[in-house]
Amino acid sequence: MERKEEEHYSNYFVQSPSSGFHDQESEFQSPSRYDSVPLVLVRLDESPKHSDFLKYSENKCVFEDDDDEKRLMPLRSPKSGWWIVLQILWRFLFSFGVALLVFYIATQPPHPNISFRIGRINQFILQEGVDSHGVTTMFLTFNCTTNLIVDNKSNVFGLHIHPPSIKFFFGPLNFAKMIGTKLYASSHESATFQLYIGTENHAMYGAGRDMGDMLQTKAGLPLILRMNLISDFRVVWNIINPKYHHNVECLLLLSNIGRHNQATVVREKCRLVS
């Protein structure tokens, strides 16, 4: 009986740590050695005796053990106060932006109409003189009235006009320029603004004599006027602020034949460049 038991356990003998340096073959040939111990097989449960289970509720963690004891462990909420504020602010800004877009589409102002007219030449006098360096030349005294006509077709918004810039040219020579003031055209209104441009005792040098000779001819003296201005509608402060650029160019001919040296406009043609 004892022999059978030894044969039964002989397949489960392992080498003892104290005999780690012995020959393995001799060890297996002597299963009854005193330094060999039986290998005990133990079934391990997949979960330990005191296995823990965590169950999450909305704001608490439930801790359970094998003794059916439950403990509640509070968890920190993932939604902090700052996160809630950020969500509310983001939704408010999104709704506000959509509302502004709808408002702008519903009340979108049309493009304003800008036109320009030469009023009259108050003075255009060429006189010979000497400049500060002792050079003899022609001096020009010039004064002109112009009309800026603005047709604001918007029924809701007024048109803000930035200070316009006006320049007079004789060929490439710019002999007079002016920067005006801010203007305003009310909604659904056509307004006319008078602008003044001029110069006094401006030295013309070689161009002065050519201008004087042309004034005495039937063809007249050709001058070019260029005006640049920017207008805008302030729909929602500077958030929605459509702007418009206006460039006007006018060609006018001056003559003083039979008018006692008083130059007048004999021809005028203005066009909107952009």
Rank of each mutant, 00 (worst) to 15 (best):
P74S: 09
G20H: 01
G97R: 04
F175E: 00
D232A: 02
T145H: 04
S36W: 09
R271E: 08
N122S: 00
S32T: 01
G206H: 05
R209Q: 13
L75C: 14
V135H: 08
H245Y: 05
Q108P: 00
L126I: 02
Q108E: 08
R271W: 12
H260M: 03
Y12L: 07
D45E: 13
H162D: 06
T137H: 04
I224N: 11
E64Q: 04
T181D: 14
W82Y: 01
R117I: 06
V102Y: 11
G180F: 08
R33W: 08
Q123T: 06
L86R: 10
N256Q: 11
Y205R: 01
E6Y: 03
S255Q: 15
Q216C: 05
N256K: 10
D52F: 12
P163V: 06
L54A: 10
H162K: 06
S30F: 09
K79S: 13
D45I: 10
C144I: 02
R3T: 07
R43T: 02
Y34R: 10
T192P: 04
H260Q: 04
C61H: 05
T199K: 00
F233A: 05
S77N: 15
V62K: 07
P112M: 09
G171M: 02
E200P: 03
F139I: 04
Y9H: 01
H133E: 01
A207E: 01
R120H: 06
L41P: 06
T192F: 01
T217Y: 05
D23L: 10
T141W: 08
V236Y: 09
L183R: 09
P163D: 08
L223D: 11
Q15A: 08
L89D: 09
L89M: 13
K4A: 01
T137Q: 02
E268P: 03
S231F: 01
K182P: 12
K70I: 06
F13C: 13
E189W: 01
I149E: 14
S51W: 14
E27A: 11
A191F: 06
Q216A: 10
I240G: 03
L272P: 02
I88N: 08
P31W: 02
S18L: 05
L75W: 11
F28V: 14
L215E: 15
S80C: 13
S26W: 04
P164W: 00
S26R: 09
T107G: 02
G81V: 00
L126P: 12
L215R: 15
R117H: 15
L173R: 00
S26Q: 10
I179K: 12
R271C: 09
S255K: 12
A219M: 03
I161M: 04
N143Y: 00
N247S: 11
K182W: 12
A176V: 13
F142C: 03
I179Q: 12
S95E: 06
I240W: 06
I114E: 05
S36A: 13
L140K: 03
L251T: 15
I197N: 03
N11Y: 01
L89N: 11
T136H: 10
S51C: 14
I121P: 05
I149Q: 13
N201Q: 04
H8R: 00
L126W: 14
R71M: 14
V14K: 06
L159G: 05
P109R: 05
P31K: 08
K153C: 07
E64F: 10
G134C: 03
L252M: 02
H160I: 11
R209K: 12
